[in-house]
Amino acid sequence: MSARIERLVTSGTFSLDGGTWDVDNNVWIVGDDSEVIVIDPAHDAAAVAKAVDGRAVKMILLTHGHDDHVRAARETARLLDAPIRLHPDDRMLWDAVHEEAPDGQIADGDVFEVAGVELEAVHTPGHSPGSVSFVAPALDAVFTGDTLFQGGPGATGRSYSDFPTIVESIRTRLLTLPDETVVYTGHGDPTRIGDEAPHLQEWIDRGH
């Protein structure tokens, strides 16, 4: 059975800098009928476990440390008996939610294998210092968390974020991927690299 990408949408809240907002998050499950990797198991551990449906979970990968993405990670890990990995530059965000450390770190260039395909970690800071995207060339896919969305970069108006940094990450690490690469985002609908690349200068001019 060849590897595929499954999407689960969960709902909850995101809190930072004294504010709280309602959000819907994408949880991405990559694998086949036997084994999977779960990316960003947000909000609802039971719903994630139901979607996994008994398959072996090799790893839980976190694109970044904002609480909407990590708050349910520990409970999900217990339900699925799987280790959690996070880039160390986002430990301050993780530590604001959890007392127990992640099970391992993510470094730029790390490769995670599942169901015969590889996901390569690409450090894409800006939305947060430890934001990471996962590139899966065999699936024509990149999982960008909150770094790149349909219509532009993720938010950079809050603590630990920086607009010039996120634009540089997108320009040098993501828009260099093939145009047909599907961008699987942390919120909202997927897009394609070829649909976003022509708008880079517009984003810079908007400075949003």
Rank of each mutant, 00 (worst) to 15 (best):
F143T: 12
S169F: 07
F143A: 11
R158L: 15
A136M: 09
P129H: 08
Y160F: 13
V117F: 05
S169E: 06
L175P: 00
G152N: 03
V122W: 03
S159A: 15
F163R: 04
V167A: 07
P164V: 04
V142D: 04
P129A: 06
D162P: 10
P164G: 01
P164W: 00
D146R: 13
F143W: 11
T156W: 13
A138V: 09
H127K: 14
L174H: 01
T172D: 14
F143P: 02
T156P: 14
T176N: 08
L148K: 01
T156V: 14
T165G: 00
D140P: 07
D140E: 15
V117M: 04
A155G: 13
S169D: 08
S159E: 12
D146M: 10
G152V: 02
A138F: 10
R173D: 00
G154V: 06
L139A: 09
S169K: 04
V135W: 15
A121Y: 00
T124P: 07
G126V: 14
T172K: 13
Q150N: 14
S161K: 07
L175F: 06
L175M: 01
V142N: 02
S128R: 00
V142K: 03
G116R: 13
E120N: 03
S131W: 05
G126Q: 14
L148F: 04
T176M: 08
G130M: 08
F143Q: 12
A155P: 05
G157D: 13
T124V: 14
P153M: 08
A141E: 15
P137V: 12
E118M: 02
G116A: 11
I170M: 04
T165W: 04
E118V: 04
E180F: 09
T172C: 09
V142H: 03
V122T: 00
